[in-house]
């Protein structure tokens, strides 16, 4: 067994204390949540922290709250907490469904949504869906609280825009309007997805026409993104929209920097986009 280098674990009582601890230890410290990414990074010496700040012990950071038109998920909620939450299953089933297919049962039991987003690993399911849902992440640090869009938080592969000492505290997701239909589809043959694709379609007439579309893609590019040009193409009658799917997929592929990686070559991912955009639209409209 490959031993980890020595570190200390600190247990903050509050977010403010966690933030202070992180500032105190600077480059030598970091947040520790489920550890499912962090411990691997430490094992492979990609990160060299001597101080881990265990944010799971901060009361309230793993709560899930809801009002009529939004849901708030605490950063320390595990994938499993979210997958099983009756509130989320009722109000945002697309999120519960996506979470139930993240990684494997063990990673879902320990890994948190906050850790997933902050690590900004390019093959994140939640990041892609949350971008299409126009979720806002809340942070707290020395200079106060901020609200960021997912594509403001994640600003590159393995890169986030948090300032030193700043923590992700919760994810605020607007619940879908009655006219909105959403779907998340992914494709994978190994432990991480090769493609993730989310659509949110506004249809005032039960699926016959689409008045507005949001499309987010992830995993096949360094970080999740939307394409205004592709979204514009998916407006009109269902027939018109379906006819334009191949072109919209090309536009999505052109706008994203498709990468060759372990999950496949860029050309292959371009092909996958066409197949899965069609499936996502069908699933959103037909629920199948």
């Amino acid at each position: 067994m490959t031993p980890l280098n020595r570190f200390e674990i600190h247990q903050p009582a509050t977010i403010t204390e966690a933030s202070r601890m992180l500032l105190e230890h600077g480059e030598e410290g970091g947040c520790y949540a489920g550890g499912t990414e962090l411990l691997l990074a430490l094992r492979h010496r990609a990160l060299q922290y001597q101080h881990l700040v265990d944010i799971k012990v901060i009361p309230g950071l793993n709560s899930i709250q809801a009002a009529n038109d939004w849901i708030d998920i605490g950063a320390a909620c595990t994938h499993r907490d979210i997958e099983r939450s009756p509130l989320i299953r009722e109000k945002l089933p697309v999120v519960a469904e996506m979470e139930s297919h993240v990684a494997n049962v063990r990673v879902r039991a320990s890994g948190t949504i906050g850790g997933n987003l902050c690590f900004a690993e390019p093959h994140s399911d939640p990041a892609t869906l949350l971008l299409a849902l126009e979720a806002v992440v809340r942070t707290e640090g020395e200079s106060g609280a901020r609200e960021l869009r997912v594509d403001e938080l994640i600003n590159g592969a393995y890169s986030n825009s948090l300032e030193p000492g700043e923590l992700l505290t919760s994810i605020h997701i607007p619940v879908l309007l009655p006219v909105q239909r959403a779907a998340y589809v992914k494709y994978q043959i190994r432990e991480r997805p090769a493609l993730g694709l989310a659509v949110v379609l506004d249809t005032p007439d039960g699926g016959a026409t689409i008045s507005q579309a949001r499309i987010a893609i992830g995993c096949l590019c360094p970080f999740p993104r939307r394409s205004a040009a592709a979204e514009e193409m998916l407006r009109g009658s269902r027939e018109e929209v379906e006819a334009l799917i191949p072109q919209a997929a090309e536009v999505l592929a052109d706008d994203a920097e498709l990468i060759d990686d372990n999950e496949g070559a860029a050309d292959y991912k371009r092909h996958l986009l066409g197949v899965f955009l069609r499936r996502a639209v069908a699933r959103a409209l037909d629920g199948a």
Binding site: M1, I9, G35, T36, L39, L40, R43, R80, V105, R106, V107, A109, S110
Partner: peptide, 12 residues
């Protein structure tokens, strides 16, 4: 709950 004990701290 199942965990990967290879990458799960005994501290937990």
């Amino acid at each position: 709950l199942p965990v990967s004990s290879c990458t799960y701290l005994a501290y937990e």
